[in-house]
């Protein structure tokens, strides 16, 4: 039975050793503090978090090679800013899961809400269910693999990184896209401004196969994906548009 103390050093040390956090019994602050106390360390350890009940910012701000299993649904910003951590959410994630992730892996076994992986710079985000709107908005280098479908405005203003959607994509996919690359297996409801379909070469199929394997997604054939990217007409200055400025 874990205590519900105020988080003095001694108690936090004992909590860390147990590596099981029941959020009915210890506070979210204590969990995140214990995770942050590992920041900068190379030690890999396994953690389990239970009774999350939609709480916000669960396991946000990790900067160590920790393996964290979150059993239950989470609210906003779970595993936000993750660096090195391997976070698995066994349930659904609220808005902004893995927001601004730098490296490591975040896996959601259920569905993710809006702006999953927003502005993430690196690492891999895997969503085994569906993702909501604005998935990968302003992504800056992360790879995102979604087993199901995504909502509208996926990869909005996405700058760098790759997105693999095994199901369908909602409207305005890739609006105002920079250099991120998008692969969709199912239907695309519509493309956003400056997003165009590009030819799918063999090298791209290999890339998709590799990402699916990395994501541990089986039963999806890498053949049959379509590739989307930027037409590069929007973000390069065009003298013909000078009147618009």
């Amino acid at each position: 039975m874990l205590g519900t103390g105020t988080g003095d050093g001694l108690q936090l040390e004992s909590l860390k050793l147990m590596r099981l956090f029941n959020l009915d019994e210890v506070s979210l602050r204590e969990l995140n503090q214990a995770l942050h106390d590992c920041n900068g360390s190379d030690e890999a350890s396994a953690w389990t978090v239970t009774n999350t009940k939609g709480k916000h910012a669960v396991a946000a701000g990790i900067d160590a090679p920790l393996e964290v299993t979150v059993n239950g649904h989470v609210g906003y910003y779970c595993a936000g800013m993750n660096k090195q951590g391997q976070v698995t959410i066994r349930g659904n994630a609220g808005p902004g899961v893995a927001e601004n992730m730098m490296s490591g892996l975040v896996r959601v076994t259920g569905n993710a809400s809006q702006y999953a992986g927003a502005s993430a710079h690196g690492g891999l985000l895997v969503i085994e269910g569906n993702a909501g709107s604005r998935c990968g908005i302003s992504m800056k280098g992360v790879d995102i693999v979604v087993r199901g479908s995504i909502g509208h405005m996926g990869a909005f203003m996405a700058q760098k990184g790759r997105m693999v959607i095994c199901g369908d994509a909602g409207g305005a996919l890739g609006d105002s896209l920079y250099e991120a690359r998008i692969f969709v297996k199912g239907e695309v409801a519509g493309l956003g401004a400056d997003c165009v379909e590009k030819p799918m070469a063999e090298e791209h199929e290999r890339e998709v196969a590799q990402l699916l394997e990395q994501a541990g997604i089986s039963g999806v054939d890498a053949a049959g994906f379509r590739r989307y990217g930027s037409a590069r007409k929007l973000y390069h200055f065009n003298i013909d548009n000078v009147d618009a400025y």
């Binding site: 009940k53 939609g54 709480k55 916000h56 239950g72 649904h73 609210g75 906003y76 659904n92 609220g94 259920g110 569905n111 809400s113 809006q114 909501g132 909502g151």
Partner: peptide, 20 residues
């Protein structure tokens, strides 16, 4: 938010989704 639903009996077994 889901956390308001989490207080209901059987919420962890409920079918959950976001309205389109």
């Amino acid at each position: 938010e889901y956390r308001a639903i989490a207080v209901l009996p059987g919420a962890d077994q409920a079918e959950c989704w976001e309205p389109e």
